[in-house]
């Protein structure tokens, strides 16, 4: 399985994605840095951050922007690894190999999952670490509300990253059903709105049950995507 995953990375030119993920991480860092220390989110009249309720501190913003970006990134990668492989017929080639179709699909999904999970965790660590380090010298417009010393912080960070990246499988399922890369990416956008956005006071971002449900739904969709492959005709 590990070998199949490595081959997937090689085939899909993983170097390009590493570069893009790194660029994304830098942009996110600069953006959140400006949020905290350059006051771009401050209301010009009052000089305090103009935020939605519950987002007065820095960590919700960090969570929101990193999750959002990497969910879309996962959608894009799933689209190009799997959905477009069906479209440009390289899947026909893959399915002519003496390897179970399910195994091929799982390896492709894992290839994307592992990459994005790693990238998201690293990006978050860099941003949290960077902002914490800078807050010793500069004054942050948002209160620093996290503590990087205890294990709780890291466990939470990893679990959240897992949930976000796994949600990409919902987008994959929709994309595969509609045979469209665009649908995959658009679905990942919609998922962000569902989980992160708020309408007035109404938001699902702080709901603890929702991520659990979404993860279960995502895994169910992932399972469905894989299951149907074995007997389905390739068109």
């Amino acid at each position: 399985m590990l070998k199949l995953i490595k081959l997937e990375w090689k085939k899909n030119n993983i170097g390009k994605y590493i570069r893009n993920a790194a660029i994304l991480a830098v942009i996110l860092y600069l953006f959140l840095f400006s949020f905290a220390f350059l006051g771009i989110a401050n209301d010009p009249d009052t000089g305090v951050p103009d935020t939605a309720p519950g987002n007065e501190t820095i960590s919700p913003s960090i969570e929101l922007f990193t999750s959002m970006s990497f969910l879309v990134f996962t959608g894009v990668m799933l689209a190009s690894f799997i959905v477009s492989a069906y479209k440009n017929k390289t899947m026909n080639l893959m399915f002519s190999y003496p390897i179970k179709r399910q195994k091929i699909l799982i390896s492709q999904m894992l290839a994307v999952w592992i990459f994005n999970f790693t990238a998201l965790v690293l990006t978050k660590l860099v941003i949290y670490g960077g902002i914490l380090a800078n807050s010793r010298f500069l004054e942050s417009a948002f209160p620093i509300d996290f503590d990087m010393t205890g294990p709780g912080f890291y466990i939470q960070l990893i679990v959240k990253a897992m949930v976000i990246v796994t949600m990409g499988f919902i987008a994959l399922f929709v994309g595969m059903a509609m045979k469209s890369s665009k649908a995959t990416i658009i679905t990942s956008f919609l998922l962000i709105f569902l989980t992160q956005a708020n309408i007035g006071d109404l938001t699902m971002a702080n709901n603890t049950v929702l991520p659990v449900i979404l993860t279960i739904v995502s895994l169910a969709f992932a399972f469905l995507s894989v299951c149907r492959a074995e007997t389905k005709d390739l068109t």
Binding site: K11, N12, N88, K89, T90, N92, L93, S96
Partner: peptide
Amino acid sequence: IIEFPTFY
């Protein structure tokens, strides 16, 4: 080879 061969 089925239909046209595909490559990366």
